[in-house]
Design a protein around this nucleic acid. Structure first.
Length: 426
RNA sequence: GGAGAGGUGGCAGAGUGGUCGAAUGCGGCGGUCUCGAAAACCGUUAUGCCCGCAAGGGCAUCGAGAGUUCGAAUCUCUCCUUCUCCGCCA
């Protein structure tokens, strides 16, 4: 959510942002309703002031055992008028709030212009060695064929017991998945200095609103109406909301959390696109990084967070590239986003495995997460950041395909050895 | 799932229709005293919104929302939540 004062004072900037991020052009409505809102507030507050003053007068008369019927009758009229205006104001604030909620976050100055994913800039490419062959399409079995050959995952039975897109991890596949999660958590917690959290996998509507998933992306989230709970699409939601409606102290910042969760996404409307195997599933596993940062250092923290995610890929020796998303591809809530894509050699594709964003105060304002510079100063909004560190599903595709040996066996990355009881899948 | 008791400022805890944004204590901040510190004493100590260049003024907020009333922390209803007991259960 943007600050209404920023919208009021920089309408051109906001109008431009809405256009770039393909939002609804609600700006004129917002400005108009903001004006009416303030006009009503001014009227109703004069009346309330009168009511308060006269009510004191009534109390004084009653104590003095003097009649107050005239004043009371007069105040009845004022009170009715207040009630009418208050109702109008409530309605107006509700619609205004919805409109403001639908305005996307403004972009950082370093974000390049661009209409869609084609405008994203590759800013970095990494491979275990500098040889070009890393990025060539390789012969061999793709991850699905490998999974079948070694019985690592069972998509068919997953579909039987749940639905399509809910994979079952079997045997060494399950062990490898678990090893990846533990390796990533340990690396972030013990080397990168994040505190580990294991959050609930269900959250309420207010939490989803705080991170910006509601109301705009409500159709992407699984909902259990009986309990009014939503299955989390990412651990970002529960972890960012840890400090919803709280005021932190400056000395606590930056707060850095890493957390594993299963992630549930309906992926409505994306049928038929990259749906094979692990490329697009309704349930997957992810280790998420979340930071609550001081506004002055949030951009440094953003670079550091992205590096922390990249470090995982480097330790696993999986080739990747970093993309700086262009203006048109940067998400609704984000001011700037880097995507990390891993190279899946048999698939011959770059697969998105991480997305690292700085939301500045956009989420913090929605979720009301603040800090105090010192004990006497006014609370200000923190900056929130997050990034996948990383999602296992896409990583698994790249890992299996890249580590496939000429003889068809799959070597396990050295970094995972402490977490595994086997060094090769054969 | 059933029964009962609660939710008040950073914390503890008074307050059952009118001078209550809210006693008191603790904590925090500033000061006096002191070589310094402690103690003691004095002062101060919420957030949001509206008007205003500012100084300042106003409105709202006692778990949330709705209602009764000229007037609600206080009365009514709904919801959330915490605790205790019973039942069920990994």
């Amino acid at each position: 959510m943007l600050d209404i004062k920023l919208i009021r004072e920089n309408p051109d900037l906001v109008r431009k942002t809405i256009a770039i991020k393909h939002g609804d052009d609600v700006l004129d409505q917002v400005l108009e309703q903001d004006l009416s809102r303030r006009a009503i507030i001014q009227r109703v507050e004069v009346l309330k002031n009168k009511r308060n003053t006269v009510s004191d007068e009534v109390a004084r008369l009653k104590r003095a055992k003097q009649p107050a019927d005239d004043v009371i009758a007069e105040m009845k009229i004022v009170s009715d008028e207040i009630a009418t205006l208050d109702a109008k104001l409530r309605e107006l604030e509700l619609t205004l709030g919805t409109l403001v909620d639908s305005i996307p976050n403004t972009l950082h100055s370093s974000v390049p212009d661009g209409a869609d994913a084609a405008g994203n800039q590759e800013v970095k490419r990494w491979a275990p060695s500098s040889e070009a062959h890393w990025y060539e399409k390789k012969e061999g079995l793709d991850h699905l064929a490998l999974a079948e050959k070694y019985q690592l995952f069972d998509f068919k039975r997953g579909a039987k017991i749940a639905a399509a897109g809910f994979p079952v991890y079997m045997g060494r596949g399950a062990a490898l998945e678990r090893a990846l999660i533990n390796f990533m958590l340990d690396t972030h917690a013990h080397i990168h200095g994040y505190e580990e959290v294991l959050p609930p996998f269900f959250v309420n509507a207010e939490s989803l609103r705080g991170t910006g998933n509601l109301p705009k992306f409500g159709d992407q989230v699984y909902y259990m109406p009986e309990d009014k709970l939503y299955a989390i699409p990412t651990a970002e939601v529960p972890i960012t909301n840890l400090y919803r409606d709280e005021v932190l102290t400056r000395s606590q910042l930056p707060l850095k959390y890493c957390g594993y969760s299963a992630c549930f996404r309906r992926e409505a409307g994306s049928y038929g696109k990259d749906t094979r195997g692990f490329l697009r599933v309704h349930e997957f596993n992810k280790v998420e990084l979340v930071k609550f940062a001081h506004p002055e250092t949030s951009w440094e923290e953003h670079e550091a967070l992205t590096r922390d995610a990249e470090r995982i890929l480097e330790l696993l020796e999986i080739p990747y590239r970093r993309l700086l998303l262009c203006s048109g591809d940067t998400s609704f809530s984000s001011a700037k986003t880097y995507d990390l894509e891993v190279w899946a050699s048999v698939e011959g594709k770059w697969l998105e495995a991480s997305s690292c964003s700085n939301f500045e105060s956009f989420q913090a304002r929605r979720a009301n997460i603040r800090f105090r510079e010192d004990p006497k100063s006014k609370p200000e909004f923190v900056h929130t950041l997050n990034g996948s560190g990383l999602a296992t599903s896409r990583l698994m595709v790249a890992l299996l395909e890249n580590y496939q040996q000429p003889d068809g066996t799959i070597k396990m990355p050295a970094a995972l050895q402490p977490y595994l009881r086997f060094s090769v899948i054969e």
